[in-house]
């Protein structure tokens, strides 16, 4: 059986700034990294491999240079990787992206049964958290988001039990497989690749599936298949705060002023 980890190469957003004139992202010279949430998805796939003996496939949709990120997946221990790359996939929103990823998972499933698909809960560049659920919907798989623990896979009964991390509480859910799980960072600590694995990954052939191979209806993918249009990207103006009292000379007085202000705004429940 196969576990599929969907990973995305993203710009290292801590190093992205916004052009103050054009209000667009300055991507030049910014290095790419594996989306941090996806590193946890990949790690969880590798842990399922360790626990249940699955094979792990990592897939990514992106430009040709996204193969760098797939090599990292190989170095970490993925058994196979596929790069989904075609000009026709470009400009995709989350709907069109989930189309392509779903088609790839379907192809993989034809060869070897897919038990679980793992995604990060969201990416750090788009921040929509829609692609995982989109894949579940397209494929008709169970959708389990915000997972912080995979408790049990019952392979005979084809059921999975996970814990979801919700606001202020946990939810333990059991559901049929195959399932798409989106994971939060707390689920694990990603492993560090060994040098022999890295060297093997550096020399591996990275299979690329273009749409010539996948033959998805062109109107459902890329820019054409994307109903979402981004109008503008900008950094929000932030109101400057106010300095209360004189903390340097009268810290007690300043603290009192602060408490009073917070209470007046109902921000300090007592």
């Amino acid at each position: 059986m196969l576990v599929v980890a969907c990973i995305k190469q993203v710009p290292d957003t801590t190093q992205v700034s916004i052009d103050p004139v054009t209000n667009t992202l300055i991507r030049e010279g910014v290095p790419f990294i594996m989306n941090p949430y996806d590193t946890h998805a990949l790690e969880e796939a590798l842990r399922l491999k360790d626990r249940y003996g699955f094979r792990v496939a990592a897939i990514s949709m992106g430009p040709p240079n996204a193969e760098v990120t797939l090599r990292k997946a190989l170095a970490a221990g993925a058994d196979e990787v596929v790069l989904l790359s075609d000009r026709a996939f470009g400009g995709a929103d989350t709907l069109a992206t989930s189309q392509v990823l779903s088609a790839a998972i379907t192809r993989l499933n034809e060869r070897e049964e897919v038990a679980v698909v793992l995604c990060g809960k969201q990416t750090i560049d788009g921040d929509t958290a829609q692609v995982g659920p989109g894949i579940a919907t397209r494929l008709g798989y169970t959708q389990l988001t915000l997972v912080d623990q995979i408790q049990h896979l019952d392979l005979a009964a084809r059921r999975v039990r996970v814990r979801r991390k919700l606001e202020g509480r946990h939810e333990i859910v059991e559901a049929p497989m195959p399932a798409v799980l989106t994971v939060v960072r707390e689920i694990n600590r990603p492993r560090y690749p060994t040098v022999p694995m890295r060297l093997a990954a550096e020399q591996a052939e990275i299979p690329v599936w273009s749409n010539a191979v996948m033959t998805i209806a062109p109107e459902t993918i890329g820019l054409k298949g994307s109903p979402t249009k981004v109008n503008r990207i900008f950094s929000p103006e932030r109101d400057k705060g106010e300095i209360l009292g004189d903390g340097a000379h009268d810290p007690d007085g300043a603290a009192e002023l602060l408490i009073a202000r917070l209470m007046s705004k109902d921000l300090l429940p007592l």
Binding site: R189, P190, R191, Y192, P193, T194, V195, P196
Partner: peptide
């Protein structure tokens, strides 16, 4: 330990990355 087995105190991974 690091290069062949990737075994080291867990806080070191953040430093490496």
């Amino acid at each position: 330990l690091v290069e062949e087995e990737a075994r080291f105190p867990e806080e070191v991974i953040t430093f490496f990355e």
